[in-house]
């Protein structure tokens, strides 16, 4: 039991990820306000991005640019750029999604004058 707890505490980043992800999912499911749903959605996306960022962390490493072509290359001195690039692209995708979703919500607000999901569904019928 305590060994497991110890193993968990060695990876606090995973615990934070799980909390953020579940929190976002909870907000998405529970709230009836469309903007709050979007906040939950963005939290889910951000938690995944956070997880990807923590995968790329390497202590004591620097940007993967060779400063000298003659000095011997020490692999452990450089961070792997791939998780960072993946994260960057995922952030761009997330921002684009948020933009589209806010535009949709704005269109709905202009049409129905409310952001409450139940209210809108009632008017649709």
């Amino acid at each position: 039991m305590f060994e497991h707890l110890d193993a968990w505490l060695h990876r606090p980043n995973f615990i934070v990820f799980v909390i953020l992800f579940s929190w976002g999912l909870y907000i998405m499911v529970v709230h009836h306000n469309l903007v709050k749903k979007l906040i939950g959605m963005y939290l889910v996306q951000t938690s995944v991005i956070f997880y990807l960022v923590t995968l790329g962390v390497k202590s004591g490493a620097t940007v993967p640019v060779l400063l000298s072509t003659t000095a011997p290359i020490r692999v452990e001195a450089y961070a792997n750029p791939l998780p960072h690039v993946v994260t960057l692209t995922a952030i761009v995708v997330g921002v684009a999604t948020l933009g589209v979703s806010l535009a949709l919500v704005a269109a709905m607000y202009r049409k129905y004058g409310t952001l409450d999901e139940d209210e809108i569904l009632k008017r649709l019928e």
């Binding site: 996306q45 995944v48 589209v100 049409k111």
Partner: peptide
């Protein structure tokens, strides 16, 4: 009516995409 359908599609689709990205992260 399409706005609400599009919004639901967006919420679920983005959640699916986030899960997929998470799976990719695990594989990585």
């Amino acid at each position: 009516k399409a706005l609400m359908s599009a919004f639901r599609y967006l919420i679920l689709g983005t959640f699916g995409a986030s899960l997929y990205l998470l799976g990719v992260g695990y594989f990585y």
